[in-house]
Design a protein around this nucleic acid. Structure first.
Lengths: 335, 335
DNA sequence: GATGAATTTGTTAGCGCTCACAATGGAGGC
DNA sequence: GCCTCCATTGTGAGCGCTAACAAATTCATC
C-alpha cells in the first residue's frame, strides 16, 4: 500500500520513526549485539511499518562487497551442469549471496575472458566456473581475476579451488563391473579428450583394464551427443570387436543403443553397455541403462562451501564427490 | 600487473591522469556526445593505462538502477526451462544487463514470494518468471513487486508481460498429423493440469479431436517424468484402446516407449506416438520420436525483448512463438 | 560514593558515481 | 566591436549506507 510516488524509505526514515539515530537502525539490521532489547523491537517495528528494505548499492559501495557470486558456465542446459548450477544457487542463497550467471556458448579464451570481464564489471565477490574444459583452467590461471575462484573439475591450485566428482573412480567402477561379468574385450566411447571429464574417464577405463591384464585398445572419441553415440555405434555394430562398451555419458549411450537396435545387436545379450551420469531418463532407455551416478547438486553445494571458505580466509582447497554404480539391465554376464 | 594493495582506480584517478575533471571522464564512459575528440582519446588512454572499471554500486546508488534482471525459475535443469534461461541470459548480456537467478524447488506461494523478496533485496530492475505453473501467475498478481515482470506462459495483463510458445497450436499439429494417418482413437498422456502448458496441450488435443468429429475421452494425467510415462504406458498396453497416443512431453514419451517395448506393443506398427518439446535426444529414442519442437532459446530472447520494452516505456505486451512438428519414425499410417 | 569498565547510542565522514547547474571559449550575425 | 548561441568543460551536492570515533549511560567494584 506504499505510495509509489514517494521514494523508498531509507535508514533515516526508519530512525526518525523509531526515535533513534540511523546508526542504531543500521546496528539492528546488521544484528550487532550491543543494542538494547527495547530499542531493537522499536526499530524492527518501524522497519515493518515502513516496509523498509536495505539498499544494496549503498551497502556495496561502502563495504566493497556485492554479496554476489558469478557462475560461469557452458552447456548449462545439460543435465550435469544445470544441476550443478542449482546446487550452487541453493547453497549461495542459503548463505545470503546472490547468484549471477554468464553462459559461454562456444568455449574459447575470448569467451571466457569476456565472461570474467562481465563479472568484474559487476564486482562479484567470487566466481564459480562450470566449464569442464581443460582450456578453461589455463585461461583462468592466465587471467587471474583477483577474487576467489572455484572450478568444477579442477584439482585445485594456489589461486583456484577445485570441486570434482572422482571420474577415474567412476570409470573404474564401471569397468570392474564388466570384468566381473566375464567380459575381456571392453571398448570405450570417450567424450572429447580436451574436456577434463572426458579425459579422466578414459584414463580410468584404461587403468582398470590394465590392472586386470586386459587390452585398452578399443577407444573411439565422441562429442557427448546422442548423435555421435549413434554414428560410432553403427561402426561398432559392424565390427563386433568388443562384448562390452563403457560409454562416456548417458546421451551417447542412448545413441549407441539406438544404433545397436537398428543393427540387430541385442543389449545385453550380445553386448553389454554402461553409461555415465545417470540422468533421470536413463532408467527408461531400451534397455534400462547401467550407469555411473554423479550427484551434481552436491557438487554445486560443495563449490559454494569452498567459495565461502575462500571468501572468509582466502585459502584454496579441494573436494571430491564419490560416484556410484547403478546396475540396471544393459549389462549381463558374458554368455 | 596492478598493485593489489592499492585500491582500484576511480573516476577521479582517471581524470587526474588525463588532466580533466571527473565529470568529463564520466561523459566519456557514458558516451555523452559533447566531448571533443582529443579529450575523449586522452581519457580513453588514461582508462586503459589504469585499467579503470566503473564501480557498479556507486552508479546504481545514484541512478537507482542495478542493470540486473532476476530470473525466477523452477525445473531449471529440464531441457525447456534451462534453454529459456540461456536465451534470456544471452539477450540480457547483449543489452548490457546482468542476470541473477533464483530457483524454486517446490512451487508454492511462499517459495515464489521468497524468491521475489530475494530479488527486491537485490533491487533488480525487472523479473523474468520461468515457472510454468498456473499458481505462479496468481501469486505474481497478488504480490506485484512494483517492477516490470515478464512471465513465460502468461497471456499478459496490465502488470505482467507474457511470452509463450503456442501450446494449443502445437498440440493441434500433433493430433492432425495422427488424424491424417487415419487414426481415430487418439489418446493423450497429459502433463499436470495445474501447469499452464499441460493444460494448454490437453485443450489443443481435445479441440483438434472434436473439430474432426472424434472422441476426446482417452486422457491420463502424468507428472512430466519418464517414470510416469512408463507407468501409464503399462496400463495403456494392457487396454489397447487407442491406436495413437499424443504425449505431453518427450520424457513421458520415453517411458511410454519403454513400457510398450516390454509389453510387446510395436511402435509405430501397433500404436503411433507423438511427443512434445523435441529434446536433442528424441531423435535417438527407439524408435526415433515424432514430436513438436519448441524453440526455447528464442522464447527466452523474446522475454528479454519484452523486458527491455517494459523497462523503457512501462508498457506490457505479449509475444507468441510458433511450434513446429518434427516427423520421425514413431508415427505411421493406421494399418 | 568515587572510579573505572562495559554497554548503549549518537556524530561525522566518505565510499564513487551522476545530476543539475555554472563557467568558459570560440563562431557567427549585426 | 559587441552580443548571442552553442559546444565543451568544471563545480558542488547528494544518492544510502557503514566505519570510526565520541559521548552518554549503566553497572560493578572498592
Amino acid at each position: 500500500m506504499a505510495n509509489s510516488n514517494a521514494r523508498l524509505p531509507r535508514l533515516e526514515d526508519v530512525a526518525e520513526r523509531a526515535g533513534v539515530s540511523h546508526q542504531t537502525v543500521s546496528r539492528v539490521i546488521n544484528k550487532h549485539p550491543n543494542v538494547s532489547k527495547a530499542t531493537r523491537e522499536r526499530v524492527e517495528a518501524a522497519i515493518a511499518e515502513l516496509g523498509y528494505r536495505r539498499n544494496t548499492a549503498a551497502r556495496s559501495l561502502v563495504t566493497r562487497r556485492s554479496q554476489t557470486i558469478g557462475v560461469l558456465g557452458s552447456e548449462l542446459s545439460q543435465y550435469g551442469p544445470a544441476n550443478t548450477l542449482l546446487g550452487v544457487e541453493q547453497a549461495a542463497r542459503d548463505a545470503g549471496y546472490f547468484v549471477s550467471i554468464a553462459a559461454v556458448r562456444t568455449v574459447s579464451r575470448e569467451a571466457i575472458f569476456d565472461a570474467i570481464q562481465h563479472f568484474l564489471d559487476q564486482s562479484v565477490d567470487g566466481i564459480v566456473v562450470i566449464v569442464p574444459h581443460a582450456e578453461t583452467l589455463l585461461a583462468l590461471e592466465e587471467q587471474a581475476p583477483g577474487i576467489p575462484v572455484v572450478a568444477v573439475g579442477a584439482s585445485g591450485s594456489e589461486t583456484v579451488s577445485g570441486a570434482m566428482v572422482d571420474q577415474r573412480r567412476g570409470a573404474e567402477l564401471a569397468v570392474r563391473h564388466l570384468i566381473e561379468q566375464g567380459h575381456d574385450r571392453i571398448g570405450h566411447i570417450a567424450g572429447p579428450q580436451d574436456w577434463i571429464d572426458g579425459a579422466a574417464r578414459a584414463e580410468g577405463w584404461s587403468a582398470a583394464l590394465r590392472a586386470a591384464g586386459l587390452a585398452d585398445d578399443l577407444l573411439v572419441e565422441g562429442d557427448w551427443s546422442a548423435g555421435s553415440g549413434y554414428e560410432i555405434g553403427r561402426g561398432l555394430a559392424a565390427e563386433r570387436a568388443a562384448t562390452a562398451i563403457f560409454v562416456g555419458n548417458d546421451q551417447m549411450s542412448l545413441g549407441l543403443l539406438r544404433a545397436f537396435n537398428e543393427a540387430g545387436v541385442r543389449v545385453p545379450e550380445d553386448v553389454s553397455v554402461v553409461g555415465f551420469d545417470d540422468q533421470p531418463e536413463s532408467g527408461y532407455f531400451t534397455p534400462p541403462l547401467t550407469t555411473v551416478r554423479q550427484d551434481f547438486e552436491e557438487l554445486g553445494r560443495r563449490c559454494m562451501d569452498l567459495m565461502l571458505a575462500a571468501l572468509a580466509n582466502g585459502e584454496t582447497a579441494t573436494t571430491v564427490v564419490e560416484p556410484e554404480l547403478v546396475i540396471r539391465r544393459s549389462t549381463a554376464a558374458l554368455a
